[in-house]
């Protein structure tokens, strides 16, 4: 005999990922560690910003960076040269990192050996917005070469972020303008911290580190 039955589920589709993300967040908080998730388009300058941050912080903190890319270890190799410990996740076509992917990497290390953890998410402004990786803050990097409408076109990722980085401000001029992006990032969310940077010239890198709430010890 065959019986048809409808089961009421009423569970959030993201519940498994979100539970892992919350566990990661709690672990970091309990252990007094910092964990940030950096998102942005391909070519926005995420990797160079992380190289700059790693270089600036490595004399004082143990930094661990997880890079997400479809293929290669190029980004992890680059950032490793700046003093951070790095690991590359190759998603093989996946368009975002997830809490379980991050947890797997954390399971391979001793969290206590590090002070600051940063993920460089897979490069795009859509998919990473939906998948919580357990970070305390989400940072979105856009560059002024992406066009003045890039924030208006991708509101969701900015709604879920605490810091918007407007990068490549060194080429500000006739063809590229940071003004609209700064205004849009401020309008989309009242408590958004907006930082203008040039990873190339290091402009704004210290401001970004300060916005993350990390103390930069004064040089002796």
């Amino acid at each position: 005999m065959v019986e048809n039955k409808q089961i009421s589920v009423k569970k959030k589709a993201y519940v498994v990922n979100d539970a892992i993300a919350e566990k990661i967040r709690n672990t970091m908080k309990t252990k007094n560690k910092r964990f940030f998730n950096v998102m942005g388009s391909i070519g926005a300058g995420k990797t160079l910003i992380l190289e700059r941050i790693a270089k600036r912080l490595s004399p004082y903190y143990k930094v661990f960076v997880i890079n997400g890319d479809v293929a290669t270890t190029i980004d992890a190799d680059r950032i490793a040269k700046s003093g951070a410990t790095t690991v590359q996740i190759n998603t093989g076509g996946g368009c975002h990192l997830s809490a379980s992917l991050i947890q797997k990497e954390f399971d391979k290390i001793n969290i206590d050996d590090y002070d600051i953890f940063i993920t460089e998410n897979v490069g795009n402004l859509i998919c990473p917005a939906a998948w919580d990786v357990g970070a305390e803050k989400n940072i979105v990097v856009v560059s002024i070469t992406e066009g003045e409408y890039v924030i208006k076109k991708h509101p969701i990722i900015f709604k879920g972020a605490q810091i918007a980085v407007i990068n490549k401000c060194d080429i500000e001029g006739e063809d590229f303008d940071s003004k609209t992006l700064v205004e849009d990032a401020s309008k989309i969310k009242s408590d958004m911290k907006v930082i203008c940077t040039s990873a190339k010239t290091k402009q704004g890198i210290d401001d970004l580190i300060t916005a993350l709430g990390i103390d930069i010890p004064k040089r002796e």
């Binding site: 065959v2 048809n4 039955k5 089961i7 009423k10 589709a13 939906a130 879920g160």
Partner: peptide, 13 residues
């Protein structure tokens, strides 16, 4: 965001 709910599942038992 992320308010997608799995409402029901129909099964043949």
């Amino acid at each position: 965001m992320k308010q997608m709910i799995i409402e029901t599942v129909d099964l043949e038992l």
